[in-house]
């Protein structure tokens, strides 16, 4: 799957606000299948907006976004694109396991055992039946990562996924993600405030 953007600019930002970068207002930017991208920018530059445009959650942009020559649409969310949202979008009234199963029910991609072993990897298995509202932000971030892995995808979108994780947990997460992405032969687009190469062979794009 190839993602191509052309002359992209959030339509709620003025030309002055959007300084020409590696992405916005570029004639053409292509995210090649299977490749890893780090999108680096300071706060407020429109990182989340960019991922929302690619995921089809927002259409407030000028220019074009093409996924395999088609507009982004909701049907991609089950098999082509997976997304770890910056605001996580978990459901506090459900337990940890229910939050993950809510997604897995749609795709049937993982078994309960596989999910449990992923939780165990993060040291969260004991929280399995706990309501999500009792978890810390860092713990929730890890739940959101596991949930995003419960589906087939060609590209994994990660919006500041490690912002509340300590270095040890970041390492666990990076290993888990690298393994799962490799298994799926997929690509990755990660946004971050820091210019840090979490994965090998990451292209860095400045926003």
């Amino acid at each position: 799957m190839q993602i191509r953007i052309q002359q992209l600019k959030p339509n709620y930002m003025s030309e002055e606000e959007v300084l020409p970068s590696d992405i916005y207002l570029k004639e053409s930017v292509v995210f090649e299948p299977g490749a890893f991208y780090l999108i680096h920018a300071a706060s407020g530059k429109g990182k989340s907006s960019l991922l929302n445009f690619l995921y089809g959650l927002s259409f407030q942009y000028d220019g074009s976004v093409r996924i395999d020559n088609a507009e982004p649409n909701p049907s991609l969310r089950l098999s082509r694109l997976s997304y770890v949202f910056q605001d996580l979008r978990l459901f506090p009234e459900l337990t940890v396991m229910e939050n993950i199963l809510l997604k897995n029910q749609l795709t049937g991609y993982k078994t309960i055992g596989e999910i449990e072993s992923l939780l165990d990897e993060f040291g969260l298995l004991y929280k399995c039946a706990a309501p999500l509202s009792t978890l810390s932000l860092g713990q929730r971030q890890r739940v959101a990562i596991i949930r995003a892995l419960c589906q087939p995808f060609n590209f994994l979108l990660l919006d500041e996924p490690f912002s509340h994780l300590d270095p040890a947990n970041i390492e666990i997460a990076v290993n888990m993600l690298a393994r799962e992405i490799k298994k799926q032969d997929a690509g990755l687009i990660l946004t971050s405030l820091e210019r840090e190469n979490y994965f090998e062979e990451m292209s860095v794009l400045e926003l």
Binding site: P74, R77, Y83, F85, R89, F91, K103, L106, T107, R147
Partner: peptide, 12 residues
């Protein structure tokens, strides 16, 4: 908000 989030994770 719940409905919006459900749609975001792929619910029709």
């Amino acid at each position: 908000e719940t409905i919006l989030n459900l749609a975001a994770i792929g619910y029709n």
